[in-house]
Computed example of a mutant assay.
Amino acid sequence: MDRDSRIYVAGHRGLVGAAILRRLQGEGYENLITRTSAELDLTDARAVEDFFASEKPEYVFLAAAKVGGIMANDTYPADFIRDNLTIQLNVIDAAYRHDAEKLLFLGSSCIYPRLAPQPMKEEHLLTGELEPTNEPYAIAKIAGIKLCQSYNRQYGSNYISVMPTNLYGPGDNFDLRNSHVLPALIRKFHEAKERGAESVEVWGSGTPRREFLHVDDLADACVYLMRIYSGDEPVNVGVGQDISIGELAGLVRGVVGFEGGLAYDTSKPDGTPRKLLDVSRLESLGWRAKTPLRNGIEQTYEWFLRTSSVKSGG
Rank of each mutant, 00 (worst) to 15 (best):
F80C: 06
E58G: 08
V60Q: 00
A47P: 00
R82P: 00
A65N: 06
I87F: 07
T86P: 08
L85V: 11
I70Q: 12
F52Q: 02
G69Q: 07
E55I: 01
D83R: 03
A65I: 08
D74A: 15
F80E: 10
V67S: 10
N84F: 06
A63M: 04
A64M: 06
N73F: 03
N73P: 03
A47Q: 05
A94Y: 07
E58K: 04
P77T: 06
A64L: 05
K66I: 06
D50R: 14
P57I: 01
R46F: 05
N90G: 08
M71C: 07
A72C: 05
N73A: 13
V60R: 04
T43K: 08
I81S: 14
L62P: 00
N84G: 06
I87Y: 05
S54L: 12
A47L: 01
D83K: 05
D93N: 14
E55R: 12
V91Y: 09
Q88C: 10
D79V: 12
V67C: 04
K66P: 02
D74T: 15
K56T: 09
Y96H: 13
D44R: 02
A78I: 11
Y76I: 01
E58N: 01
I81H: 05
L89S: 12
P57R: 05
A65E: 11
S54M: 11
G68K: 05
F51D: 14
S54N: 11
A64W: 02
Y76A: 13
A64C: 04
D74C: 11
D83I: 13
F61T: 05
L89P: 02
L62V: 06
D50S: 15
I81G: 06
F61N: 04
L62G: 04
A53H: 07
V91M: 08
N73S: 15
G68L: 11
M71R: 15
D44C: 00
I70M: 13
Y76H: 15
M71A: 15
V48T: 12
V67K: 00
V91F: 10
A45G: 02
V60W: 02
A53W: 02
T86C: 12
D79I: 07
D44E: 03
V48P: 02
G69A: 10
D79M: 09
P77L: 03
L85S: 13
G69K: 09
K56L: 14
Y96S: 06
A64E: 04
Y96C: 08
T43M: 11
Y59T: 03
F61A: 04
T86I: 11
P57E: 05
G69L: 04
A45M: 03
T75E: 14
E55L: 06
L89F: 12
D74R: 14
F52V: 00
A63K: 01
A78F: 11
I70C: 04
I92F: 04
A47K: 03
G69F: 07
I92R: 00
D79N: 08
P77Y: 09
A95G: 13
A95E: 09
D93G: 01
A95L: 10
V48N: 06
G69Y: 07
D74Q: 14
F51K: 00
N73Q: 14
R82T: 15
A45N: 02
